[in-house]
Design a protein around this nucleic acid. Structure first.
Lengths: 219, 219
DNA sequence: TTGTTGATTTCGCAA
DNA sequence: TTGCGAAGTCAACAA
């Protein structure tokens, strides 16, 4: 990895056109040839960049970074304050825990939190337009399709609505009710969902994780 | 901006839990206290990070980066290969051109490309559930709602469908047809749109830009 | 390779 | 401040 602190201006021409006026910035050149232009603030997102695979052509006072589809990042360098290179090696990579897939696992284990006497029919219940996260039966034995999200927006309501329309056309399954379960639910999503008779449930990840999974055997 | 090349392991506990095993990486500390952990490849996204506002507490062989909501990034440092700091100053920022707003401006100027004799009623035509990108009238004087996207997915079709339902309830406007105009249209979106009688139009940004805007005065 | 979906999305605008 | 939609979204996974 090469780290350059330089006074530079940057022009990108590709999927859009963008320009950065002359200023001092960090230029990061990674081992795969990708280039990142970072300012001393903002978020983790660079001001501008070129993703791999790409090629860096270094000329006097100008870098050109191009990829196969003709996108180009042109960096005009006025002055270099720092320029070092470092061997980093291949990174072993990140391990994550607590994403949407885990929410689904947890809720599948604790379907009872949605209602007394509820049972899980199956996870990833297949339909013609994609799998329903959880298919359940309530205490009365009626079908319930559960859509799980970390953050539920209007899209989630539309998605669940499409599933419900399809499922309710099947005389063997109908009637099927809907539940939108998420760690947070956007107000507009809640309004639309309730307008369509879809129940909204806010999930607490830590609470779900805290319930002993042997609970299901108690009933 | 401080740049540190170090052999380190990283643990993040916050909205999720994540772990990085010991390896050599770049640690970038920005002026606002935010910290980025970069590997020598991948994309512009760091392996892990803490967004501002946050605070860095530096101990012997361990950094703790915390924010107000209790999220924490803990970096255990085994060896430091490089450690420099640089004054960058405030960045003047990025200027972009060619985003969705520009597509809307261009198409509003060249509504005729959608059909001979078409007229623009107004941009951002207001409805109870949000503004329609372009409201037009075709050669026969019938209303057409146009939804503009850079990339049209199924969401865009659903959005336009909601508008059309609403608009067609208004006896002063009905009947209103729908057009989905985008630089690219996902196959499933096209299928769903055409199934609902919504016309799909692929836009060419450069072509639209190339048409003299005085064209409208020719008719 | 292509398409679809989730994301510690980030970012910008507007109410 | 909050909410919502766009993004050069990116990235992982399935078909």
């Amino acid at each position: 990895m090469r780290l350059v602190i330089a006074r530079c201006s940057v022009d990108y021409v590709g999927r859009l056109t963008a320009h950065l006026p002359m200023a001092t910035r960090l230029l990061m050149v990674k081992a795969d040839g990708s280039v990142l232009v970072h300012a001393d603030g903002g978020s983790y997102k660079p001001l501008n960049w070129m993703s791999p695979p790409c090629r860096l052509e270094e000329g006097p006072g100008e870098w050109r970074v191009v990829n196969r589809s003709g996108e180009e990042l042109r960096i005009t360098i006025e002055e270099i304050a720092h320029d070092t290179a470092h061997e980093l090696g291949i990174d072993p990579g990140l391990r994550k825990d607590g994403v949407e897939a885990h929410l689904q696992e947890l809720l599948a284990e604790h379907v009872r939190t949605l209602g007394d006497g509820w049972r899980l029919v199956r996870r990833e219940f297949p339909t013609a337009i994609g799998p329903v996260d959880l298919m359940c039966r309530d205490a009365a034995g009626l079908g319930v399709a559960v859509e799980i999200k970390r953050r539920a927006t209007i899209d989630a309501v539309e998605q669940l609505t499409r599933y419900l329309e399809l499922l309710n056309r099947d005389p063997l399954l109908a009637p099927v009710a809907g539940v939108l379960a998420a760690q947070s639910i956007a107000p507009q999503a809640r309004t639309l969902a309730e307008d369509r008779g879809i129940r909204c449930v806010v999930l607490d990840y830590d609470e779900l994780r805290g319930i002993p999974s042997t609970e299901m055997t108690l009933f």
